[in-house]
Design a protein around this nucleic acid. Structure first.
Lengths: 175, 175, 175, 175
DNA sequence: AATGAATGAGTCTTCATTCAT
DNA sequence: CATGAATGAAGACTCATTCAT
């Protein structure tokens, strides 16, 4: 969605008129599709979550083992983030925003729900004294984001950080 | 600063009139102290960064070894975060906001600059093949935040997550 | 333009909300057409200058001789001033105001530029030791304004002052 | 009065805080002497009118004949205007302003009232078919102002315009 | 009498939203 | 359905004025 660009730059303050222009439609047309600006933002949030989720799922299909599954998903996330800087920035803004409803947050998780369950179950089965799934999931997300930020600042070190980042996560998660 | 409360709830959309009321002064009085709303937010950002920084520094004084130094700082951060939920939320909002200037961001780091340098140097000296300081610092911050979020959701598990979180970080950082 | 009424009464202090009401539109609509209040005032200035200029030009077309040319222009100015008391007052306020840009002032002179040149050239050609054109032009304007003020205070004496005023100007200008 | 400077620059929009600073006193002190901003402006108006009036009166004392009387007054006005550009500009702004009360306008004329009466009576006595005193007075004022403006733009031509201006006025007024 | 911080009414301007075309 | 001019509620900011010191 074209709105991502504006949200990335201006956050919630992105003006509907500008969003409309970016999307190549007239000012009023936005409201043919979204009742309010908040509706638009919620839809954008769910869409973007769907995009990252889709990328991760694609990587997830190719898994061969537990560790490789996590790694494929990690790599897919990192690559999506690097190729979609603007969308990622928009998503970050939306994520902290109060205007995203609980329903949208739940909807945002839906695409990856079963994948996440599988990954976490498999991980728990393969380590001793596993940590709580929520904690692992949150750790995963936090560290991928850190990794993408590092690579964004030093693109030459992409492969290094992608690997290093994942290994850090794996150590953190598996003890 | 009283504005934290409003920023925590409403982000950048916090109304100056409301901030004034919260602070117990008249609407116009806000502008006796801050030229613009953005100035106020930048000042708030630096102040809050100073608070977390101060808390961490206090812990840092008590260190005995490298590991214990990191742990004291970790614990201080977590405790500050738990005791200052509103300020922490405000800080999160400000951190992602475009209205915080590079100068303010730099000023925000100032209080902990030398502590951070010491911690990172000591860590690098005590492990083999240390990771980049930036990566370690970012990992630290990301994982404390995750930890605080976990505890906020399950206060009973405070001690568990505080320990578990730090150990995750330590494994991630030390390889 | 409807704003003239408000400017005549309140000068630069005329409130945009009131101007909008006078114009029969909503408060915000003003800013669809003029980016700022100052833009509006500048546009009003140029428009009003155009109106007086147009009136003078109409009189100028009917000239037969140098003296009659000046007289027709004088009469047109006086009549416009008498019929458009409010616009004239607004113009006076705008004229002394610091918010009218040099560009607008230049634009205000444009409509009468060539007429003024012709009148001044013809006058210079028909008298001995002519005075400087700027001085004559300024004298003209000053004395028409005095004349209009006199007539406004004593409407019965309109014809008397219109004639008397012009003759005073003519004596002043021709020596 | 120090306020003249601010009024010259900013007109009625001159801020009381700035006026206070210019006058070298504290913000609130202004209101020890003037109940309101309008009161201050009215007082300033009367004071400034008194100053020009005083200058003209000084010239008036030295008169020897009717014509010379007018000329001395003219010269005094022109010189005051040239030496007091800022005060003159302030006076112009105040003159067109709606906040100057009829009382203040009357008070402004007081110092020169009897002088004006004498000059006008003498003029009327020495010419045939004299014009109305109001018209002559207004013509005088309008043309001195034009003259001062001309000299301000071309200071080298001071003596020329002072003479030329007065002669224009004299021709205009005496027919 | 002087100060200047505090006040809050007032104003410009923005922008999500509507609706006639 | 699309358009974009018009709307008007909302909000940041200004500044004359007050008043405790």
């Amino acid at each position: 969605m074209a709105a991502a660009e504006n949200v990335a730059t201006d956050g919630l303050a992105a003006r509907t008129a500008k969003i409309a222009t970016t999307a190549g439609v007239a000012e009023g047309t936005v409201f043919t599709y979204f009742a309010t600006k908040e509706t638009l933002f919620n839809a954008l949030y769910v869409t973007l979550k769907g995009e990252v989720g889709g990328a991760m799922l694609a990587g997830f299909q190719e898994r061969e083992s537990v560790l490789v599954g996590w790694q494929k998903v990690w790599d897919s996330y990192v690559e999506w983030g690097l190729c979609n800087g603007i969308k990622r920035k928009a998503l970050k803004q939306l994520h902290v925003s109060a205007c995203i409803t609980p329903d949208s947050r739940k909807a945002g998780l839906r695409p990856t729900k079963s994948m996440a369950a599988t990954l976490l179950k498999d991980l728990a089965a393969s380590v001793q004294r596993p940590q709580s799934p929520e904690f692992i999931a949150a750790t995963f997300e936090a560290l991928v984001e850190v990794t993408i930020d590092m690579i964004a600042k030093a693109p030459a070190a992409q492969e290094y950080y992608k690997r290093e980042g994942f290994e850090s996560f794996w150590r953190a998660a598996t003890r």
